[in-house]
């Protein structure tokens, strides 16, 4: 028996919105410690790693480890049927063919159940080693989303250069070029508005806008985003999900021809 309940479906709704552009299908691995998803986009350029800890749920029970292949499009449609304040419960038997989503209104007067067929999927797990990154930047997630959106108008790729002075995003294309520099905030009253740079060595990497613009769909999950970068390795773009877990996106850099 697997059962996981969240008092408000808003978190799960936001998580689905944050992955649906990149993933068509994903395996949800459920164990005593929580729910984990690791899945690459079709082109194998980016990877989504989602972790929801069991202690972050209002109720969590997982008698036996389960791998449930889910269609993300269908799951997104189902989650859109829930109000943000509804309680959401995921339920499955030990060897499931289906998963049930149960939405209950706050006043308990409306109860909706949606059953979704599971799919068989081959697991393609990447082994991602613990990595010390040359630059780790924390910045407001809305600012990052804004910069990705603005610079996407100029080119297909954004170059991120990080040094002690700050972080610089730039894009160049046929119509011109653009760059945005953010300095480390001296001392911000509000933690959410801070730009913090932890730099060992300067880095300069180029990434496809398309993927960055998919990652920023996670912006509603967290006020801050953490970007971890080293030369010639994938970018890690991380959003905390309240007290329950995190979503990390990995993106392979573009390489010089």
């Amino acid at each position: 028996m697997f059962e996981a309940r969240l008092a408000q479906s808003a978190i799960l709704k936001k998580v689905l919105e944050a992955v649906k552009d990149l993933l068509t299908e994903a395996t949800f691995e459920c164990s005593d410690s929580g729910i984990q998803v690791q899945a690459m986009d079709n082109a194998h350029v980016s990877l989504v790693s989602l972790n929801l800890r069991s202690d972050g749920f209002d109720k969590y029970r997982c008698d036996r480890n389960l791998s449930m292949g889910m269609n993300i499009g269908t799951m997104t449609k189902i989650l859109r049927c829930a109000s943000s304040e509804d309680t959401v419960t995921l339920r499955a038997v030990d060897s499931p063919d289906n998963i049930i989503f149960i939405f209950e209104s706050q006043n308990k007067e409306k109860l909706a159940e949606y059953e979704m067929k599971l799919i068989n999927m081959d697991l393609e797990h990447l082994g991602i080693p613990e990595t010390m990154y040359s630059c780790v930047v924390k910045m407001p997630s809305q600012e990052f989303a804004r910069i990705c959106r603005d610079l996407s108008q100029f080119g297909e790729a954004i170059t991120i250069a990080c040094s002690k002075e700050g972080i610089k995003f730039s894009a160049a294309g046929d119509y011109g070029n653009a760059n945005v520099k953010l300095a480390q905030t001296a001392d911000s009253d509000k933690e959410e508005e801070a730009v913090l740079i932890d730099m060992q060595e300067p880095v300069k990497l180029t990434f496809a806008c398309r993927y960055l613009n998919s990652f920023v769909k996670a912006t509603p999950l967290c006020a801050q985003v953490k970007l971890s970068m080293s030369s010639d390795v994938p970018l890690v773009c991380e959003y905390q999900i309240g007290e329950i877990g995190h979503i990390r996106y990995y993106l392979a850099p573009k390489i010089d021809d």
Binding site: L126, A208, P234, A252, I255, D256
Partner: peptide
């Protein structure tokens, strides 16, 4: 011109 690398070039399959 730039080419797009893939994740498998950095991380092995488990």
């Amino acid at each position: 011109p730039v080419n797009q690398s893939r994740l498998a070039g950095y991380y092995g399959l488990n």
